[in-house]
Amino acid sequence: MSARDTILARVRDAALARPEAATNREAQVAERMTVGPKGIIPHQGQATGPQKLRQFLEKLEANDTTVTRVSSEDEIAHAVARELRKRNLPAAIRMGEDPMFHAQDWGSLDVSRGPGRLEEPVTLSRAQFAIAETGTLVLTSGPDNPVTLTFLGETHFVVLRTEDLRSGFEDMWGDFRKRGLDPRTVNMVSGPSRSADIGQVLQLGAHGPVALHLFMVG
C-alpha cells in the first residue's frame, strides 16, 4: 500500500470507529464545503457606509500604512510623483502591466515594468480588494501585478479603488469568487514588514517593505 493509502485508511478507520460516527459523512462534508458565510462575523467585520471607510482608515493608521486620497484615476501618476518627492525618493518606479497603470501619463517619471529585482527602491501594485475589518489590502499575483513587487520594494505603493473596499473577510471572499480570479497567490497585506526577533522590540522593515503607502481612488 502506498503511504497515501495507509494514512487515509488509518484516518478513515479512526473516523468510522467513533460511536457518534455519522452514516452520511460524505453528504455532511459536501454540505460543509458549500461556500458562503455560515458563522459569526464580528461587528468589526460588518461596518457599512461612512463607518466602513472611517474604520478602514483607522486600522491602516494602526498598522503603519499611510494614505493619500485622490478623486479620480487620472490623478494617480501625479499623486505618485508628489509622494516620491515628499519622501526624497528617486523619480523611478517599478510596476506590472495593470491597465490602470498603462492608462496613466507618467510624465518624466522613470517607469519600468516587470517582476521585482534585487534592489527596488519603490514598487507600485494595485489591490483587488481591501478589508475594513483589519485594514488589510488584498492583492493577486499575475502579469498585471507581479507578486515580487509586493515584497522586494523598499517602499511599496498600492492603489485601491475605494469601491473595492469590503467590510470583512466574508463579503471579500464572496466577491473574489464572483470576479472569477484564480491567481497563483492571494496576498493579504496589513502594513509594512516588521520583526521583533531582535531584543523583543518591534521594528519596521524586516525583509519586505520598510514603508507601505496607499492611494485610494474615489
Binding site: 498598522n63 483589519t134 499575475g142 507581479p146 484564480d182 497585506v189 509594512p192 514588514s193 516588521r194 519586505g208
Partner: peptide
C-alpha cells in the same frame, strides 16, 4: 502577538500560471 492580523497572509495554489512573470 496581539496583532489583529499579521502583516502578510498569503494563499498559494499550484505553480505560477503560464502568463506569470514570477513565482
Amino acid at each position: 502577538t496581539g496583532q489583529e492580523m499579521s502583516v502578510y497572509t498569503t494563499f498559494s495554489s499550484g505553480p505560477k500560471r503560464s502568463e506569470d512573470p514570477d513565482g
